[in-house]
């Protein structure tokens, strides 16, 4: 059987909220070491990669590997039943047809249970090789979210220029062009190498969808290398990571 209990069920609720507008039906892989999920949006431009380690759960048991095909759209509807400070337990049998979700408040005097029907999905699993990113930067997730929203009002596309010492977001639209440059700390500047700078263009519409995860973490990590998708990574405290991959645009 499989059973995983999170003391703070709102974390799981926030994760589902953060991916529901990108992916619809997904396979969640449950293994003895944790839960993971990989799925692309319908246009194959973006990819979601979630990993939650078993050590972050209050209780975790998974006797054998299970693939749980689930509608994220429906799961998001069920998540509306999760209130602030509720714990959440996910459980199913070894050959499940549904996933049971149990939410309980802190006083243990209110328990909500819902069985979500599972679905069979073709597995479209991409192998993401170990990549050495030439440019990585960590910034405030709220600030990143705000600037992506503001830039989207000016242009559909943003050009990222990231080095180890700064990140620059440049846009060009019908009304004009401009950029926001954010410098990182002096300590990091001392170790910088100019050749680390990479420039790539991305669709702001997707970045705004990724930013629905900003309430999961105060910080967001951006990783970039030439000729490879951008990685936007949110640490889910003591549980794991939620990563979004975004294919660049080809610019003339």
């Amino acid at each position: 059987m499989f059973e995983a209990k999170l003391t703070d069920g709102t974390i799981f609720k926030k994760i589902i909220e953060a991916i529901k507008d990108l992916v619809t039906d997904v396979n969640i892989d449950a293994t003895p070491t944790g839960l993971s999920l990989q799925a692309m949006d319908s246009s194959h431009v973006a990819l979601v990669n979630l990993h939650l380690g078993m050590e972050g759960f209050e209780r975790y048991r998974c006797d054998r590997n299970l693939t749980l095909g689930i509608s994220i759209t429906n799961l998001a509807k069920v998540m509306k039943l999760v209130n602030q400070n509720d714990s959440i337990t996910l459980k199913c049998e070894d050959e499940p047809t549904y996933l049971t979700i149990v939410c309980q408040n802190q006083k243990h005097d209110r328990t909500t249970q819902f069985n979500v029907n599972l679905i069979t999905l073709d597995s479209e699993h991409l192998g993401i090789p170990e990549t050495e990113y030439t440019s990585e930067i960590t910034m405030n997730s709220g600030e990143f979210s705000k600037l992506c929203k503001e830039l989207y009002a000016l242009s559909e596309t943003v050009e990222f220029e990231i080095s180890t010492t700064f990140v620059k977001f440049a846009v060009e639209g019908e009304i004009g062009s401009g950029s926001i440059k954010i410098q990182t700390s002096a300590d990091e500047a001392e170790t910088s190498r100019p050749e680390d700078t990479v420039k790539l263009s991305f669709a702001l519409r997707y970045l705004n969808l990724f930013n629905k995860a900003y309430s999961l973490s105060n910080q967001v990590k951006l990783s970039m290398a030439a000729e490879t998708p951008l990685v936007v990574e949110y640490e889910v405290e003591s549980l794991g990571t939620l990563k979004y991959y975004l294919a660049p645009k080809i610019t003339d």
């Binding site: 194959h44 431009v45 990819l47 991409l126 192998g127 294919a247 645009k249």
Partner: peptide, 14 residues
């Protein structure tokens, strides 16, 4: 003029 790449351009299916 911009064109959008896809994930399949970079990664292979397992």
């Amino acid at each position: 003029m911009t064109e959008q790449h896809q994930m399949d351009d970079y990664y292979e299916y397992n």
